[in-house]
């Protein structure tokens, strides 16, 4: 979990340097860093509950009946 935080921190630092030098205004910077924060939260959450919940479960629950119909 700390490693994930570290990786996203590193990415945020790189993007901060990039957006400061480029053509980005305050609004676009807010959107970019908001997006990075959202992905960080999602990644941490998925990693935290990885033994209880896997992304595969909802996909199988929703699309398996449909696939059985089509096959």
């Amino acid at each position: 979990m700390t490693a994930i935080l570290f990786i996203y921190g590193l990415i945020a630092a790189i993007e901060w340097r990039y957006t400061r030098t480029g053509k980005h205004n305050k609004h676009s910077r807010l959107l970019i860093f908001g997006f990075i924060a959202l992905l960080l939260l999602l990644s941490e959450l998925l990693y935290l509950i990885k033994l209880k919940f896997q992304l595969a479960e909802p996909i199988i629950a929703i699309f398996n009946p449909l696939e059985k119909l089509l096959k």
């Binding site: 994930i4 990786i7 990415i11 990075i36 992905l39 990693y47 990885k50 033994l51 992304l55």
Partner: peptide
């Protein structure tokens, strides 16, 4: 960030 999310997701998508 998208690549990092895919990499983390690949670790937890299936058990």
């Amino acid at each position: 960030p998208v690549t990092a999310f895919i990499a983390v997701g690949s670790l937890v998508i299936v058990k």
